[in-house]
């Protein structure tokens, strides 16, 4: 049971590594798809901007490899957004991995508070059959830091509300993502990561 952390060269990789260490879960850092050959599941971490992240995934071969991936995949924060079709971040639309249908658009908090969405928010609309959410109850809080969102749709498995609803967890088949940072979300986040790592498929 080894998890490959896809090395996106972004800053939250250390936090993800340490979170897996706290769970006693073995992992490898995978710069290229070949580095993950021995792993049975993949984590796609990411913070920062979508454009440079996609450029890196294309350069390392991951963009192609992920399109035919059968193992469980978990995208975190920007890593979740990259799973969708297109991002409106910046000016021109940025093509993404297109593993889950949906668009990434600028979050509009309205009067709910400042932009970006930063802090501990409550999970809501939990899909009862979502394996990542086993042992998690509505209203439990996780740590979000993001300025763009995916509007809730058919692949949304949990939401959070910040002026408008945000897809907090998405899934299509073996590919799932968390908009929040489970690696920095205390016991609730550890449970979600543990659910991913211990899941049988």
């Amino acid at each position: 049971m080894t998890t490959a952390i896809i090395d996106t060269s972004t800053a939250n990789i250390a936090s993800v590594r340490f979170a897996l260490e706290r769970l006693d879960a073995p992992y490898v850092l995978a710069r290229e798809p070949d580095d993950a050959r021995g792993a049975d599941r993949l984590i796609l971490p990411g913070v920062g901007a979508a454009g440079p992240a996609m450029a890196r995934l294309r350069a390392t071969g991951w963009a192609d490899a992920l399109r035919t991936e059968n193992r469980p995949v978990l995208g975190l924060c920007l890593g979740m957004q990259l799973l969708f079709e297109v991002s409106e971040e910046g000016g021109a639309p940025i093509p993404l991995l297109t593993l889950i249908p949906g668009r990434v658009e600028r979050l509009n908090p309205g009067g709910a508070g400042p932009w970006p969405h930063m802090g501990w928010n409550a999970l809501d609309d939990l899909a009862p059959d979502e394996p990542l959410l086993e042992g998690i109850s509505p209203g439990e809080r996780v740590y979000f830091v993001h300025g763009y969102r995916v509007a809730p749709g058919p692949f949304t498995r949990a939401t959070a509300l910040y002026g408008e609803p945000v897809t907090a967890i998405a899934r299509k088949g073996n590919v799932a993502g968390c908009q929040f940072h489970p690696e920095r979300s205390a016991k609730v986040g550890a449970r979600i990561l543990s659910n991913f790592i211990r899941a049988s498929s």
Binding site: A14, R22, Y143, H181, E183, R184, S185, A186, K187
Partner: peptide
Amino acid sequence: VARAIDIP
């Protein structure tokens, strides 16, 4: 510190 804690 990053190893020790699970909050930001």
